[in-house]
Design a protein around this nucleic acid. Structure first.
Lengths: 222, 222
DNA sequence: AAAAACTTTATAAAAACTTTATAGTCCCTG
DNA sequence: CAGGGACTATAAAGTTTTTATAAAGTTTTT
């Protein structure tokens, strides 16, 4: 769960941010005072700060400087002030981005995605139990140990992780991994599934993750 | 010395960027074509890209997507187009920031400072085990001993070090080192990879760093 | 012109994939 | 509850694809 702290003075914008960010799947905490923001930061961990320069109790630029004394948390500044000096000061004070009000909701969300992407090293790895696949690196690990998979094995595992808990029929796997013309050759899937189990299951004969759904196909569970 | 690549179509803006960035102490290379930009990126190391979406030979968004296949270099997009869709697309395609023309010189410089501050990974020497590459000096050392590499060998090694632990397909290497028109000639890569192993691996027949990922490509590990 | 780098080709070895065979499991039916 | 059929697991053999590397031919650089 991604946690965002929004420091915002104006009540209408407070509720706007709350609904917008919640609708995008983020956890949001809104505060109007800088000191309340600091208090919250010391209580729980956040992934991003949205900072309106106009706070109730202090200047936003000062808040930013103080934060940067001890934290590299990404900060996106929101401000009604469009002045060049204000912008440059904020960016040099440690802000990672600066958006002038009024702004488009989609642009704000896109810029938040940029900061979350670059400043949290969020590898888009998929996991299931102790199995991890990193499509970016094209690597698979089992309990932090790297496992070597062939092309077909990798393709099957990726498909199954992308459809965790869902039953995949033989033909669904065949058409994704081999291609349409290979449907009705379930033995292909069986042979490769057995190989995958050899490499990923502690006891391949009684698999814990790569389960058989008799007469239907296979399913990956945690 | 900080090295910036500017991809910019319009001659007046080209010279504006050149003088502005040079005055701020940056090393600047300006190109009008996306393909020239890729060529330059494979020759020397850069710290930042300024990308105008309107290039002479290709769409800037496509250029960005292609770059992101193999590089995490920070990219600041400059564009005359102020549309929300254009912005969001660029940011989601991997851009780190987006500035609409006309922009203030000081804001541009401030945003460049932000990107250089947060994405300080490049520019320094890259290492993997006892292999070191210094993109600025254009030298490679193996256990403190300098190794002489040819142009292609150097380009391959640089690409692999910039993508350590990541599997690079033959075609990714081909399109980056040789160019788009060379895809589907994996034998080029193989021959040069064998040469690289002769020069960098203790036992080229059982490499410790330049690993083969059968049916996929190659990968550099520590 | 000589040297170096690169491309192309050839071949053996390695790896991956397909196919077959056998044994096992589950469930239905008589 | 025994027998049979449908489905499954897995080893192993056969086939194809991919890879390493030397070496010859070509281009580029010095």
């Amino acid at each position: 769960m991604i946690n965002i702290l929004a420091l915002e003075d104006s009540p209408p914008l407070q509720s706007f941010l709350k609904t917008l960010l919640a609708a995008s799947g983020y956890q949001v905490n809104v505060r109007a005072k800088g000191l309340d923001g600091f208090a919250l930061l010391s209580e729980q961990s956040f992934d991003l700060v949205l900072l309106d320069l106009g706070l109730q109790d202090m200047d936003g630029q000062d808040w930013l400087l103080e934060l940067r004394q001890w934290s590299q948390l990404p900060v996106l500044v929101l401000s009604a002030r469009d002045g060049e000096v204000e912008k440059v000061t904020a960016l040099d004070n440690g802000a990672n981005d600066y958006l002038t009000k009024p702004f488009s909701a989609n642009e704000l969300l896109a810029r938040i995605r940029v900061l979350l992407r670059t400043n949290t090293q969020t590898s888009l790895a998929l996991t299931c139990g102790n199995i991890t696949i990193d499509p970016h690196k094209h690597t698979v690990t089992l309990a932090q140990q790297e496992v070597k998979l062939t092309k077909k094995e990798y393709a099957i595992l990726l498909l199954m992780l992308q459809n965790k808990d869902k039953v995949l029929t033989h033909n669904a796997i065949l058409s994704h991994v081999w291609g349409e013309q290979y449907i009705n050759r379930p033995e292909y899937v069986r042979v490769h599934m057995a190989q995958l189990r050899q490499k990923l299951e502690i006891n391949p004969a009684s698999p814990k993750h790569l389960l058989t759904e008799p007469a239907v196909g296979y399913r990956l569970v945690d």
